[in-house]
Simulated scan of single mutants.
Amino acid sequence: RVHPFFTEKPKNNSMKRSIRWISTVDSVLFGKSSGNEQGRSKIAAFDLDGTLITTKSGRVHAKDENDWQWWHTSVQSKIENLHQQGYKIVVFSNQNGLNTETRINGFKSKAAAILSQISIPVCIFAALHKDIYRKPSTGMWDLLEKEANDGVIIDKSNSLFVGDAAGRQDGWKPKLKKDHSCVDRKFAANIGIEFKTPEEFFLNEPKAPFTWGPFDPHIIDKDSTLNIPELGPKPHVVVFVGCPASGKSRFAKKYLVPKGYIYVNQDTLKTRNKCVAVAKEAIEEGKSVVIDNTNPEASTRALYIRLAKNAGVSVHCLYFTADEHLSRHNNYYRALNPPHDREVLGDIVFRTYKAKLQEPKESEGFDTIHKIPFIFEGPDLEGWQKWWI
């Protein structure tokens, strides 16, 4: 006779819970753990790493798909209680490191192991690329609304998001370092729902001080207008200096090219020598020219200053003063919004510009130098003022 211990099926079927992966968007993994559930108006959403789970090894990043444990012993019961209160449980995670099929499959196995220990249905979204689906952009939330909630309208006033990337600084709690970013708090703010940290939600700790970061798109003068400098008689040479995504090309194409300036840009012409050659040809033909490059170094600017002096025409510098933080914000905004004709630039280009920058001086040979602040002139100020990084 076989003892019942070996033949009885476990009463809790949660250990058999699996994930059905649904192919909706190439850059997002979207899965639902098994279980029949209709859409719900209240959403309780969570980040994954550092919020629901942490590494078993104590490392910052998991060494493999098995290196995880619950962030706190209360996580499972808290989530299940929320579901009983009528909340739909959703996980939103940035997973930019899943850049091979092996890593993607490892993440899927890990997600299945995690959700198998929760007795209620859960939706999980993982953003794989730096696009509109990556937090703090709201693409994953938009997918939830459009494709994963059975058409039920979400009540944002009764929904929340819990995440550890909350902008807390060094020492926000004894012996703890600052958060790696503020994207979870920004994600919730972009959506318009309540935000809590894991400590606040699971441990009922008081709110900790935080900072949004070095740039806040909400703090701008909406009534500011650009003062277009008067550069004197033509022909002349205009040399731009400015961080990538600081508004140089927009300025040139809106204010100078329509006035007959020859447009010189290394992204288009590919080499500095070609830029110099096109500028020289324009000057020889009696035309004004605008050099739309970052030009952080005096030695590069000297090429165009010498060109102007040799031709006997004036040379002016327009110095775009947007710093790297504002420019990085613009970088993501212009790449992730229509007309989608720009790529997201890597952070290295902003660090390189900052490291090389020698502020322009009239002693270099410029006839005038004009500082041009960044002022958003597009039609979608509300969109620009969302958090993009």
Results as ranks from 00 to 15, higher is better:
Asn13Ser: 13
Lys16Ala: 12
Arg17His: 10
Ser23Ala: 14
Val25Cys: 06
Leu29Asp: 05
Ser33Gln: 00
Asn36Asp: 10
Glu37Ile: 07
Leu48Gln: 06
Leu52Gln: 11
Ile53Trp: 04
Ile53Met: 07
His61Lys: 11
Glu65Met: 12
Trp68Met: 06
Gln69Trp: 00
Trp71Gln: 04
His72Val: 12
Thr73Cys: 10
Lys78Ser: 14
Glu80Lys: 11
Asn81Tyr: 02
Leu82Ala: 07
Leu82Ile: 02
Gln85Ala: 15
Ile89Ala: 09
Val90Thr: 08
Phe92Lys: 07
Asn96Cys: 06
Thr102Pro: 04
Asn105Ile: 12
Asn105Met: 10
Lys108Thr: 11
Lys108His: 09
Lys110Asp: 05
Ala111Asp: 04
Ala112Leu: 09
Ser116Asn: 14
Gln117Gly: 14
Cys123Trp: 02
Phe125Cys: 01
Leu128Pro: 08
Leu128Gln: 13
His129Gly: 04
Tyr133Leu: 03
Met140Ala: 07
Asp142His: 09
Lys146Tyr: 08
Ile153Tyr: 00
Val162Pro: 02
Gly163Ile: 05
Gly163Phe: 03
Ala166Lys: 08
Arg168His: 09
Asp170Ile: 12
Trp172Met: 05
Trp172His: 14
Trp172Arg: 07
Lys175Ile: 06
Leu176Trp: 07
Lys178Leu: 00
Asp179Val: 09
Val183Lys: 03
Arg185Cys: 05
Ala188Val: 05
Asn190Phe: 06
Asn190Gly: 05
Gly192Glu: 01
Phe195Ser: 01
Pro198Tyr: 00
Glu199Lys: 06
Glu200Asn: 06
Phe201Gln: 09
Phe202Thr: 14
Asn204His: 15
Ala208Phe: 15
Ala208Trp: 13
Ala208Asn: 13
Pro209Tyr: 08
Phe215Glu: 01
Leu231Phe: 00
Pro235Arg: 01
Lys253Leu: 15
Val257Ser: 13
Tyr263Arg: 01
Asp267Gln: 08
Leu269Cys: 11
Lys270Ala: 02
Arg272Ser: 08
Asn273Ala: 13
Val276Met: 04
Val276Ser: 08
Ile283Ser: 00
Lys287Gln: 07
Lys287Trp: 02
Ser288Gly: 03
Ser288Leu: 01
Val290Leu: 03
Val290Ser: 03
Val290Asp: 04
Glu297Val: 10
Glu297Thr: 10
Thr300Ala: 13
Arg306Thr: 03
Asn310Glu: 15
Pro338Asp: 12
Glu343Ala: 15
Val344Cys: 10
Leu345Arg: 12
Val349His: 07
Thr352Leu: 14
Leu357Met: 10
Pro360Gln: 01
Lys361Val: 14
Glu362Tyr: 07
Glu362Val: 15
Asp367Cys: 11
Thr368Phe: 00
His370Asp: 06
Ile372Arg: 05
Pro373Lys: 04
Trp387Asp: 01
Ile389Trp: 04
Ile389Lys: 13
Ile389Arg: 10
